[in-house]
């Protein structure tokens, strides 16, 4: 089967890869590019562990073909922190222990960051609905929601 040549931008860097037409963006990230932050929880769009943004739009990378990345700007959890500094969301997640096994965490961080960029002052209900497609088997969600709400407040104060 002939491979498809794709040029795309991932976390600000131009990236080229060859992929099989059946390969998902999640497969490409993990198996071809070594970006293993995005996780495969289900592979069917239900769990959100594979969340990335494409042109600032939150999507499941398991429901997108690698070939569809051509010319797009992709952002993954690997791009959230800088060399020396964690993102405020990451700091709060650690501080509040908003994770246990951590499988859901990269997807939740990407989703929460995207929410706060669109809406710096969400209500708790808005946060819960926004993250309804990010399943967590460990935390019971409460710490996650509190971490997102308090990060939002902190970022509003800082700006």
């Amino acid at each position: 089967m002939s491979k498809i040549h794709v040029t795309t931008t991932i976390n600000g860097d131009e990236v080229e890869f060859l992929c099989d037409p059946r390969e998902t963006m999640l497969d490409v990230l993990r198996d071809r590019l070594g970006l293993t932050g995005a996780k495969e929880g289900c592979g069917t769009g239900d769990c959100g562990a594979c969340s990335v943004t494409v042109d600032d739009r939150l999507v499941c990378s398991c429901l997108m073909l690698g070939a569809e990345a051509e010319g797009k700007e992709i952002a993954t959890v690997e791009g959230i922190a800088t060399e020396e500094k964690l993102h405020p969301l990451q700091k709060r997640f650690i501080e509040y222990a908003a994770l246990q096994c951590g499988v859901c965490t990269p997807g939740i961080l990407v989703a929460a960051k995207n929410l706060l960029e669109r809406n710096p002052d969400p209500t708790e209900t808005e946060v819960r609905y926004w993250l309804a497609g990010n399943l967590c088997r460990c935390t019971g969600y409460d710490k996650i929601i509190r971490a997102v709400m308090d990060t939002a407040a902190e970022m509003r104060e800082a700006s």
Partner: peptide, 9 residues
């Protein structure tokens, strides 16, 4: 239909 992620597509 679906989650925020599904709505994105």
């Amino acid at each position: 239909i679906g989650s925020t992620q599904v709505q994105g597509r």
